[in-house]
Amino acid sequence: MEKRVTFKGIWLPLLLVLPQILITAVFFFYPAGQAIWQSLFIPDPFGLSMQWVGLGNFEYLLSDRYYRASFVTTAIFSILVTLVSMGVALYLAVLADRLIKGSGAYRTLLIWPYAVAPAVAGVLWLFMFNTRVGVVSWYLGQLGYDWNHVLNEGEAMGLVVVASAWGRISYNFLFFLAGLQAIPRSVIEAAAIDGARFWTRFRTIVWPLLSPTTFFLLVVNIIYAFFETFGVIHTITSGGPQQATTILVYKVYSDGFVGQDLGSSAAQSVILLVVVSILTIIQFKYIERRVHY
């Protein structure tokens, strides 16, 4: 799509795009280029010179047991976060959609955790499950269950998943509710007249009509789980125990800043870049389809 009318001039528009181009070049393209460039080198032990290794960093990474484990961890983590937050959100949205009055009030009550930073969400959940002072862990202890996410890998994963999903429910709830409210009442009423009970109606009519929203949220939530949950991981587990919650983004950070392994960190950045690109392409394909239909 293009404008029919345009203003004349070459210098003015160039001047107008200049700030964005400058900032993007300096803080985006240059670093991104550096990431790709550095991924082809390893620094010597004193950090004085760089040695060309081609795809060596990548070969090393892909054969590295920890890196592959981190991939698996990220996959499990993302799938769980997506399922939990979307499941709870869908459940609440379906309930709110059934109300004639009051769905707006529930929406107000449910949307604002969106404003809570992942890192703050992490602190809140850490507080509840803290092994020494946490309320939930204390009651679990009374019930005879010894909660310790500092040592137990499964419990650590469970906690970061719940904390990450918790903050995401608002977002998914909003989109699901909008999707549900966009389904014409007449369609559902027709099904009710046909004698379909709630569950049948949901399965055969609502769910299929909601599928564009669901698919969209699936992609967006996976991207969220991949990249925006760093704060949760860092505050609750710092990637532990035994790297059980070290997702890929966390590993870029810990190898690059804590471990000072620049070549490997850069190579990991490049791999992440590929992952985001694939996810983004899927998302755009989907948007294209939505526009056409």
Binding site: F29, L262, S269, L272
Partner: peptide, 22 residues
């Protein structure tokens, strides 16, 4: 298209080099 490309890369992916620039 250059601007469009930036949509694809969160800051988390390019942290080390961006840190160096800053």
């Amino acid at each position: 298209w250059l601007i469009f490309l930036t949509l694809m890369l969160p800051v988390e992916v390019r942290i080390v080099p961006t840190y160096e620039v800053v």
